[in-house]
Amino acid sequence: MTDPAPTTNPRDRSDTSQRMAKSASSPRTSRSARRTRTGRRSPLASVALLVIGLMATGGAYAAFTSAASAEDNGSANIADADAKNGEKLFQANCATCHGTNGEGTNQAPTLLGVGAASVDFQVGTGRMPMAVQGPQAERKPPQFTDAQVKDLAAYVASLAPGPEIPADEYLTGKGDVTEGAELFRINCAMCHNVSGAGGALTEGKFAPSLKGVSAAHIYEAMLTGPQNMPVFNDQNISPEDKANVIAYLTYLDDHASPGGLDLGDLGPVSEGLFVWIFALGSIVAITVWLTAKSN
C-alpha cells in the first residue's frame, strides 16, 4: 500500500504548499489534513470526543469527591466538641436512617446508648454514612473533618450514656507487646488473621485488615464491637490490655517482616501461588531458553 501523492490541483496550490510545509515530517498528517479539507471527520474524532467527555466527567467527579472528604486529620478533642453543631450534622446526614432523635428506624439501628466511641469509630473511619447497603459498611475516606466527627459524637453521647472516646494514655502505642500479641492471637486472630491481614466471615462479611488503623479506632472497635465484631468490654479485656493489643499492632505496622516481602501476610496460599508463578515460572522460562534452538 502506498500513500497517494498530495494533490497539486492548481486551484488550491497555495493552500497545498502551506499544508505541505506544515506536514513535511510525515505523510500521515498530510493525509488527515486533506480529510479536513474534504469535510470528513477523522474516524478517531468520535473516540477522541468520548475520551475527552469521560475524562472531564471522571476528573470532575474525583475533584468533587475529594473535596467532600475530610481534609484535616488533626485530632480534635471531644472536650471542645460542639454538640449543637453535631445535632445539625446529625439531622442533615444521619437522621434519614437513624431517626431524628437517633431512635432508629427499620433501616438502621438506634443510636441511643452507643456512645461517643461508636460514632468516632463509624464516622471517623468513613464507614458511616454508608455509601450503599451491603453485607457490611466498608471503610472509606471519612466524609467529615475530625472536629465534625467529635461534634457528632458529642451529640449522640448527649442522647444517652454509652462508651466514651478512650483517654490518650491508652493510645500511645506503647505497652507490653508480648502480652498484646498473646491477647491478639487468642481473641482477634481467628477473624483478623495473626498478622492482622483480615479474613472472611459468612455471607460476604469480613474482618478487615488492621494495618494502618489508628490506635483510637482499634480501641473503639474493641470497646463497641462494630459490624459483626464482638464487644470486648473493660471487664473482658482491661484498658491496659487493650493498650497492649494496640502496642502489638503498632509494632507490626512499624516493623516490616524480617524475612523480606510479606506477600500480604496471607500465609501458605500466597506462598504457594508465589512458588508456582514466580519461582517455577522463571525456572520453566529458563529451561525453554536453555533448550531453544539458535536461529
Binding site: A189, L261, D262, D265, E271, F274
Partner: peptide, 27 residues
C-alpha cells in the same frame, strides 16, 4: 532472600485454643 515464608514469629507458639483466619496447609 527476598520473600518471607512461614513467619512463625507471627503465628506464635502452638496453643490449642486459637485458630488464625487464613489457616491453610502448604500448597
Amino acid at each position: 532472600a527476598t520473600v518471607t515464608i512461614n513467619p512463625i514469629w507471627a503465628y506464635g507458639p502452638y496453643d490449642p485454643s486459637p485458630v488464625s483466619a487464613g489457616t491453610q496447609p502448604d500448597w
